[in-house]
Design a protein around this nucleic acid. Sequence first.
DNA 1: TTCATATATTAGCCTTAGGTAATTCTTTTG
DNA 2: CAAAAGAATTACCTAAGGCTAATATATGAA
Lengths: 160, 160
Amino acid sequence: MDKRDRQFHTYRGYQKIKQEKTRLTPSMEDYLEMIYRHCKNEGYVRIFKLSELLNVQAPSVTRTVQRLADLGLVDYEKYGLVKLTQEGEKIGQVLLERHILIESFLSKIGVRDTLLRDTEMIEHNISVEALHSIECFNSYLEDNPHILKEFEEYKKSRGY
Amino acid sequence: MDKRDRQFHTYRGYQKIKQEKTRLTPSMEDYLEMIYRHCKNEGYVRIFKLSELLNVQAPSVTRTVQRLADLGLVDYEKYGLVKLTQEGEKIGQVLLERHILIESFLSKIGVRDTLLRDTEMIEHNISVEALHSIECFNSYLEDNPHILKEFEEYKKSRGY
DNA sequence: TTCATATATTAGCCTTAGGTAATTCTTTTG
DNA sequence: CAAAAGAATTACCTAAGGCTAATATATGAA
């Protein structure tokens, strides 16, 4: 455990600490996760497609993809196709699984309209420990469906 | 509801959207929340103290406090004391309550060592809707303590 | 009251990650 | 196969939020 996790830091402060370890910024994770999603089906993805999927402009994509290539996570040559390396694929899969896990958890406790956004904002920063807790709690809720049923009642009774 | 919440955006993308609305960046929220915590007891706080509490250097504090002053959230004059305005106090209180709510929730599902960091990373970005869900789920767990007891058993039985 | 120390500020640097405009490369089409 | 259209890149801008070094102000002790 990083002792710095116990001290207070700003939001940016924690992000810097995390980045020291993983080399990946939240944005890079976003790009990699999306590349993974798309490549799983198509085998490759183009800069323009990514810019649409991520709602950013093409030059931002070019730059980030080049950085991911520098890190050895994607294969990319100018004007070419974006493909994942083995390592990129491994990490992409982890990222997608994390996304799905958090999304499913938030969905269980009743988040609807902002599900995508909330998942997105949580996933990049959550600790492995918290992810574990969520995973475990998720399984527990799945194995005991009556709890969520009761919770729905409870919600209604409180006028939510 | 912002329709953009339904489309995929990068992490930064969502932050920008949020910032359009609240005027506050995650870092500014950190500073304001800490100012609130400290002023609640002491009535004021100094730049140097804040830099210690937030683990950043003094010049970063000066700049951010000046921005908060521009927004009318703190009273501050060069070399003086930092105090909250009425509005700053109102927002600070909301921020601290949000922090406590998320912390208590994460703690319930078993986050320990990384509690502070995880709370910090989640609080600035979570939607009002998700916060509501968490609040409600929190109350439900508090009103039904047997659930968390069972969950502890479940955890052990799965070797966590 | 002057000087040393502690605290704040200013100026300026860095990085990330967004953006635009202009340019270059690729592909498609007449 | 040349020209137009589409896609990608480059160069450059912006803002936030860290940082350091240098300067300025305040304060407490001799």
